[in-house]
Design a protein around this nucleic acid. Structure first.
Length: 144
DNA sequence: TTTCTGACA
DNA sequence: TGTCAGAA
């Protein structure tokens, strides 16, 4: 059985910083493009001053990655950026919901179960998310 | 060596 | 957008 403890401290992602060379390697986007995108206001680098080397946050790295994905799917740069931004806004909501609702994860040989806690304040039913044979579905069980 | 800015046979 | 130059 594996449990998720929301009190665990994870890596401070704000301290994960990438140089333009690293971003090129990871995302495949050229330095020329990255500078152009920044010039156009599509992306932002950490305190871009004078002729100093650009640094990108992990968040920006993810953003750039998403933009390229949409770009590869035929979207224009502007459209790709808009999509990436929309996707970005969903992440905090997903995180908040999971952090608040996910009580734990049970991993067995045949299936994995996500415990989402009680259905409502009556505490008479509990809802689980099941991952089994490549399928996912919910299961509600009565609590006695 | 890497990155920066500006420019374009 | 790529690529080259000249500088940092």
């Amino acid at each position: 059985m594996a449990e998720l403890d929301s009190n665990d401290a994870f890596i401070d992602t704000n301290k994960l910083i990438f140089g333009i060379g690293q971003v090129q390697q990871i995302t495949g986007v050229s330095g020329r493009q990255l500078r152009y995108w920044e010039e156009q206001g599509y992306i932002q680098s950490i305190s871009q001053k004078k002729g100093a080397a650009r640094e990108y946050s992990l968040h920006t790295l993810f953003f750039i990655f998403h933009v390229t994905r949409f770009l590869n799917n035929g979207f224009t740069l502007q459209a790709a950026v808009d999509r990436a931004k929309k996707f970005d806004r969903q992440l905090p909501v997903l995180r908040q919901f999971l952090r608040a609702q996910l009580q734990g994860v049970n991993i067995d040989d045949d299936q994995s179960v996500l415990d989402f806690g009680y259905v409502d304040s009556s505490h008479t039913q509990r809802i689980y998310g099941v991952v089994k044979d490549g399928e996912t579905f919910f299961r509600i069980e009565n609590v006695d």
